[in-house]
Design a protein around this nucleic acid. Sequence first.
DNA 1: ACGGCTGTCACT
DNA 2: TAGTGACAG
Length: 680
Amino acid sequence: MPVAKPESSDSRVIAHVDMDCFYVQVEQRKQPQLRGLPTAVVQYNEWKGGALIAVSYEARKFGVKRSMRGEEAKEVCPQVQLVQVPVARGKADLSGYRNAGSEVVSILARRGRCERASIDEVYLDLTDAAEMMLADNPPQGMETIDEEALKSHILGLNNEDGSDVKENVRKWIHRHNADHRDKLLACGILIVAELRMQVLKETEFTCSAGIAHNKMLAKLASGMNKPAQQTVVPFSSVKGLLDTLPIRKMKQLGGKLGISLQMDMGVNTVGDLLQFPEEKLQERYGINTGTWLWNIARGISGEEVEGRLLPKSHGSGKTFPGPRALKTVPAVQHWLNQLCEELSERLCSDLDQNKRIAHTLTLHARAYKSSDTDSQKKFPSKSCPLRYGTAKIQEDAFNLFQAGLREYIGFYGGKTQGSHCSGWGITSLSVSASKIVPIPSGTCSIAKYFQGQSTSHFSSMQSSDNLNTEATLSLPSGSECYSEVNLSEPKIDFPKEESWIKDTVPDLDLQEQKDLSSTLSEKTQDGFIQEDISPLLLSGCLEQNRSKQQQDLTKDESQFKSEYKERKGKRLKDKGTYSIIELFKSYNPNPSGSFLSHEYNRTVGGTDASSSSYSRDEEEGRREAWGYNIDEIDSSVMEELPTEIQDEIKSWMQPHKRRPNNMVKRSCTISHYFSPSKKS
DNA sequence: ACGGCTGTCACT
DNA sequence: TAGTGACAG
């Protein structure tokens, strides 16, 4: 359910940039001969020509639509060029599109806070850039306005018949008597036009954009004139825009909530919403959503543009529709292995390129169960701490699947009362990695400190310091080491054939069932420290990049594990006497240089800030990734450190400023421009 | 037999 | 928390 956020200001300049039929453009850049031709991107060509997932504007003119099959598209447009999505490991591989999206983001992030909203959409907060332009070189004083900016669409601008549209736009941008908000938007027009031209020049991709005072309106506007155009929503046009806008066109109202508004409340346009008092909406839809609805009816949306250039999770999944459903455990395992391979690859790239580590692995599946009492039961999602390394991810994912399957099948091991074997089938599988946090980069002074005071012992092991600090200081709570307990659990050996349930799943009594299905969650509640496993996790990824002679490390892993456990216990017990310095000195699981050494050099070299690929907020996230409350660090430990380092640690530990979830505030700055009764 | 594959967010 | 569901493109 949507939630209302207070609006920080009603004169922000927010842009929403939306790539035009992005997948098509990516394919056309690969194959320039396709440019200008009606083109569509399809995935899985086997069945009815595959499903269309992107359609060029040329093809749309012929009536080709997304959600058509390739064959249908050929019927309405015989000359349509169908390009297949790349396939890897037997599944669609979207990495080319993801990477292309990153190219775009890195350009758009140049002028202000930038939020990657999806693979092909971005929000920008250009308020500061616009204010600066207004102060230094306001559009009102410019002699010429860029051609691309003049092609903008300005909602509410009176274009009488025969009038020169561009000339009207030029006048609007040049107006001296405009209010502050419109002048800011005028700056936004110029900035966004420039950014879009940059994108075109550097990536060959066109995009469309909306420019307004908040995200909701910007998003609405970006879709109004496509492709390759931009649309502006001046403050004064908001009411007129929303009045007749079909309610389902609003973001978040395209689903059940929108239907309910229509069916239950008779609301067909956003304007229709205005007649309902806030209390009525809250009564029907809850306090948060009620206020949110009341706000959006008035064009109020306080959502901030989050500075985030990178995704918060990675996933890899595949569906197995109908007859293709997976019916044996080995078949599931095979596909899980493929999915995990892809996921692992992406996690390693993320670690390599962005210095981020994912902490949670989740398995999702959909299943059907014929001949059973509750066949609509959902296959449960399961998650566990994520260990790096393809084989480990595969192993963990498979265990999650088995845990889910046991729960899904239920107490009787798949047998119904009539001792009839119940068939199950898996119709979709996906694995995802979440809780991705940056490896703290703030270790600069710590690294210097130890480099300075240590002997050869330390200097030869610089690269692992990063890991160690991360490992020992991070987030409390979570599991000790999932791998040690859960993975050594007895596993069921499945036969290759379909009837394994009948043949091999032992009949378990109630208590056993309970134990099995709750194993995963129980093991994570032991009060140990999640990041204790980090170096182990990482060693999995390191393995892949490491040369042979470095592998001696791996064989010491179990020893390292138990030492680690000891130390951790000690730390928890002897809180007052344990030294942070001891922690730093004692772990050196990776004596040779790893890929992390380059990160180390970068930060120590002091050139990090300029070369960082993080947005400002992500840099903050890096510091916050430690997630420690300063109070939780024993003062005697802190005192051992030089003040310089104490200060740095304190700076990472600053608590989040966060509003409680149910705090609903409303800005009336916009609302008082609307007439509805007492509310303003 | 399904739109497939991703991704985010809020609720409980 | 972990797990679920809604929504989007």
